[in-house]
């Protein structure tokens, strides 16, 4: 029996991914006249551990498997192979337990667009078992902390900018006090000030709430500023994993200059940054 199936879970490991495999495009069933689609490997035997309290970054081009990896952890996809554990709980066999520990911000700020931020957050909070006063107070506090004016809290989401919607998405995820927060390109579309506010808030959450954060991003500056460790994923496989400093130190110098994280990223993932939509 492999060691990973009999060992007791390490309390310091927040996420343990062992040989995770996810393919799409071949469901095993199709209409008799339907076209046969080739299976695409989105996550290819990925293994990694994320330590408790860590801010862990996953960098990769579009279509590299970042979002699929997050969906596997967040119980929205079932792995085709390997296993994924959150604080020792298997995401397939103990999905409900895992769901109480996590929350996720996706790159698309998905809301009931006619409802206000407060109404959307009330819905989110109740789904996680919060009572009305606790949810309402928490929602107001976090939204204002993220820089939203009190006046917009009652306006329909559809009247808000993309950046403001993304802040509400982040507030919704924070509201349930997850101990593992999955942030899938959370600052995409935000202006520099908003970006910085969100980054400060992520750090604050980690420091004050003992939360672990898994962050995917295209923003190398953000990754360097926030992440304790970074994995670079390409074609569904992890091609590098270390601290940003160590990754830079291991890369060859360019024209006598120390490489940036972006240089490291480009050298590991090739020139073709956009391959297909994730």
């Amino acid at each position: 029996m492999p060691a990973h199936t009999c060992a007791l879970p390490d309390p310091d490991v927040a996420v343990r991914i062992h040989q995770a495999l996810k393919t799409f495009g071949d469901s095993g069933w199709r209409w008799p006249s339907g076209p046969r689609t080739a299976a695409k490997v989105a996550v290819d035997h990925v293994s990694l551990n994320i330590q408790r309290g860590e801010i862990f970054g996953v960098l990769g081009p579009n279509g590299s498997g970042k979002s699929t990896l997050i969906r596997l952890i967040s119980t929205l996809l079932l792995p085709d192979g390997g296993d994924v554990q959150v604080f020792g709980h298997d995401v397939v066999r103990e999905a409900r337990r895992v769901q109480t520990l996590i929350n996720r911000v996706s790159v698309e700020a998905s809301f009931f667009k006619k409802l206000s931020p407060l109404e959307n957050l009330m819905y989110g909070a109740r789904l996680y078992g919060l009572g009305a006063p606790e949810a309402r107070d928490g929602a107001r506090r976090i939204l204002i902390r993220l820089g939203l004016e009190p006046a917009v809290l009652e306006q329909p989401m559809e009247e808000m900018s993309r950046g403001m919607q993304q802040k509400v998405a982040i507030a919704r995820a924070f509201l349930s006090s997850p101990i593992l927060l999955l942030l899938d390109e959370p600052t995409t579309g935000l202006d520099p000030r908003s970006k910085r506010e969100v980054q400060t808030f992520v750090r604050e959450l980690r420091d004050t709430h003992d939360a672990t954060v898994l962050l995917t991003t295209h923003d190398m500056v953000e990754a360097e500023a926030l992440c304790d460790r970074v994995a670079i994923i390409h074609g569904g496989r992890i091609v590098a994993l270390d601290t940003p400093e160590a990754l830079k130190a291991a890369a060859p110098r360019l024209n006598g200059h120390s490489p940036t994280l972006e240089d490291v990223f480009l050298s590991l993932t090739g020139a073709q940054l956009v391959e297909f939509v994730d």
């Binding site: 967040s74 409900r96 109480t100 996720r104 998905s110 667009k113 789904l127 996680y128």
Partner: peptide, 14 residues
């Protein structure tokens, strides 16, 4: 339609 399906289905509710 709203794009919230993933958010709802990953919530800890039977």
């Amino acid at each position: 339609w709203e794009g919230t399906i993933e958010y709802t289905l990953m919530a800890p509710i039977t």
